[in-house]
């Protein structure tokens, strides 16, 4: 389970990198062709918006797998070791619940976008599939938080107090 989620997170992180590269290329070609042939490529704005959201949602899970979301630790460090581990577990568990809620609510938003037929402006790309991509990213985030919570709980219970 753990390896499976990590690999999925890594894969989606790679995908995010490709999309970022494509965004930069798309914008550059748009600018070049606007000035050299007076013919911009339609949809640079659309592609940038959708690309950005995919880059973000495909990569937040991996950042959490690596526990790299930022926190402030100067008070925390003074707590006893066992308490720190239990607190870690609780925080990850809270994160898990929160991500489930966000994912769930985003999926409802995706359904509303689908029913309303909402698209991007220039290319009329439907928005709902992109919202589903967000839901996938958020679900991965939730799962990795759950795994962390279990791991810390385990460590906190079996830690040697001495």
């Amino acid at each position: 389970m753990k390896r499976w989620i990590e690999q999925l997170a890594r894969f989606s992180h790679r995908l995010a990198q490709c999309i970022l590269f494509m965004m930069a290329i798309y914008i550059t070609i748009d600018v070049l062709s606007r000035w050299m042939w007076n013919k911009p490529i339609l949809g640079a704005v659309d592609f940038t918006e959708l690309g950005l959201s995919m880059v973000i949602f495909l990569s937040i899970a991996y950042t959490h797998v690596k526990e790299e979301h930022i926190s402030i630790d100067f008070v925390f460090e003074r707590f006893p070791k066992r308490m720190q581990l239990v607190l870690h577990a609780i925080i990850h568990f809270l994160t898990f619940i929160l991500m489930v809620l966000i994912g769930w609510s985003t999926s409802e938003y995706a359904i509303r976008l689908y029913n309303a037929n909402t698209t991007t402006g220039d290319l009329t790309i439907p928005l709902y599939p992109i919202a589903w991509v967000a839901v996938i990213g958020l679900s991965l985030f939730a799962l990795s938080a759950l795994l962390h919570a279990i791991r810390y709980m385990h460590k906190g219970v079996f830690i040697n107090d001495s």
């Binding site: 938003y109 509303r112 309303a116 037929n117 909402t118 698209t119 402006g121």
Partner: peptide, 22 residues
């Protein structure tokens, strides 16, 4: 518009074209 649908706003005013396709 979506905010008025869900109740995030009780009244919403905007441009139709800002949610293309709808």
């Amino acid at each position: 518009y979506d905010m008025a649908v869900t109740g995030e706003a009780d009244i919403a005013l905007s441009v139709h074209g800002y949610s293309p396709g709808r």
